[in-house]
């Protein structure tokens, strides 16, 4: 996977099947434009199976839960994950997020 697509907007699939459609749908659901959700939902459903579409919806739900739990409880990134994720954090500039301050040494 091309990591930069996680934080960039565009039509790049990032080496993931239907990556651009997946990202555009997530952006729409996380945003405030209901018309955009309708449009991106239709676009995504035209390229993935119904079962896969439901999986996307479930993942969006799940990470909206865990992100809030993580940020509201101030948990640090686990030491093993921290040690393994240095390149990813650097490439995506994750230290700019305020919650990086919950992990000693991350900012």
């Amino acid at each position: 996977m091309k990591l930069s697509v996680v934080t960039e907007r565009g039509e790049d699939d990032g080496g993931v099947a239907h990556g651009a459609r997946l990202l555009a749908f997530v952006d729409a659901v996380q945003g405030c434009d209901d018309d955009a959700i309708e449009r991106e939902r239709a676009a995504l459903r035209s390229v993935v199976s119904p079962e896969a579409f439901v999986d996307v919806c479930a993942l969006v739900a799940s990470f909206n839960v865990v992100d809030r739990v993580a940020d509201a409880t101030g948990i640090p990134l686990d030491p093993m994950l921290y040690a393994m994720s240095g390149d990813i954090r650097e490439e995506l500039h994750l230290a700019r997020f305020r919650s990086a301050g919950n992990t000693p040494g991350a900012r």
């Binding site: 996680v6 934080t7 997946l22 990202l23 997530v26 952006d27 996380q30 993942l59 969006v60 990470f63 909206n64 865990v66 992100d67 809030r68 993580a70 940020d71 948990i75 990134l77 995506l92 994750l94 230290a95 997020f97 305020r98 919650s99 990086a100 919950n102 992990t103 991350a106």
Partner: peptide, 10 residues
């Protein structure tokens, strides 16, 4: 992508 949009470091 969800976590990036939520700006969640974890």
């Amino acid at each position: 992508r969800v976590s990036a949009l939520n700006e969640c470091f974890y």
